[in-house]
């Protein structure tokens, strides 16, 4: 479905007293593959490079080197960048909605961007509205809605083009229990519908129950990958949180021994 080959993203930032421009790798040689019917969890602390990685996968950012390949339903050749975007539903804490539009108007515009015929857009809006219970507020301006209602419209926006791949960047951070639940249920449902789901979070417990496979990243690099169970076994722990700390500590010791 989606494959990343040796992705690298280099940023320039100024560092230290001398204010020299230093290049640092926010994402440093990450490869991954996600198939339909699978949820891949990307775990890591703040600043680990999760957002940068997902932005590259979603086509919002161009990698400094490496490539992203997206395959359609009939997985023949890799799709062009624009076609890839059509197959990806991207949702993050930063993808806010246009407050001056109503949910319906927003989806109508989105339908045009994804080149879906008008009559079909209306049908899909009906369908999604029933599934997510948007009926009561679909025609209100989004700026007037509550956080939970806005979140539902966000999901509706992702669903509209019927993407094969979902990329969710910390979708539950800052949300209350009910709104988080909505998103988690949604991901489970889409997985059952044989969609590929990539999902980043720093809530380890959430990831443990939800993900088929986990990718732990730290300072731009993959430090562990596998099913939650595999990772726990490798680190001799019984939950992902402890496993994460064990891995990070091991990493840092490794660094020190190298430097010495």
């Amino acid at each position: 479905m989606i494959r990343a080959n040796h992705l690298v993203k280099t940023f320039a930032r100024t560092e230290g007293k001398k204010n020299h421009r230093v290049e640092f790798k926010a994402v440093n040689d990450i490869s991954l593959e996600v198939h339909g019917g699978e949820i891949l969890g990307i775990l890591g602390p703040n600043g680990a490079g999760k957002t940068t990685l997902l932005r590259m996968l979603g086509g919002l950012m161009e990698p400094s080197s490496g490539s992203v390949e997206v395959y359609g339903k009939d997985s023949g050749e890799a799709l062009s960048p624009l076609e890839s975007k059509k197959n990806i539903g991207y949702l993050s804490g930063n993808t806010k909605l246009y407050g001056r539009f109503s949910g319906r108007e927003l989806m109508q515009y989105w339908g045009e961007f994804y080149e879906i015929p008008k009559s079909e857009v209306e049908e899909r809006i009906e369908e999604i509205s029933n599934a997510l219970e948007l009926g009561g507020f679909l025609d209100n301006r989004i700026e007037k809605l509550s956080t939970g209602q806005t979140q539902r419209i966000s999901i509706a926006r992702c669903l509209l083009p019927k993407p094969q791949i979902y990329i969710f960047d910390e979708p539950t951070s800052g949300l209350d229990v009910i709104s988080s639940r909505l998103i988690i249920d949604f991901m489970k449902k889409e997985k059952e519908a044989k969609k590929a789901v990539l999902y980043s979070t720093h809530y380890m417990e959430e990831a443990q129950t939800l993900c088929d496979r986990i990718l732990m990243i730290h300072e731009g690099r993959i430090v562990a990958s596998g099913t939650p169970r595999e990772i726990e076994e490798a680190t001799h722990t019984d939950n992902l949180r402890d496993a994460f700390f064990a891995i990070i500590e091991g990493e840092e010791e490794g660094h020190e021994s190298k430097e010495n």
Partner: peptide
């Protein structure tokens, strides 16, 4: 915060 939403579009 809508710029990123816009950038997800094809």
């Amino acid at each position: 915060g809508t710029l990123e939403t816009l950038l997800t579009l094809p």
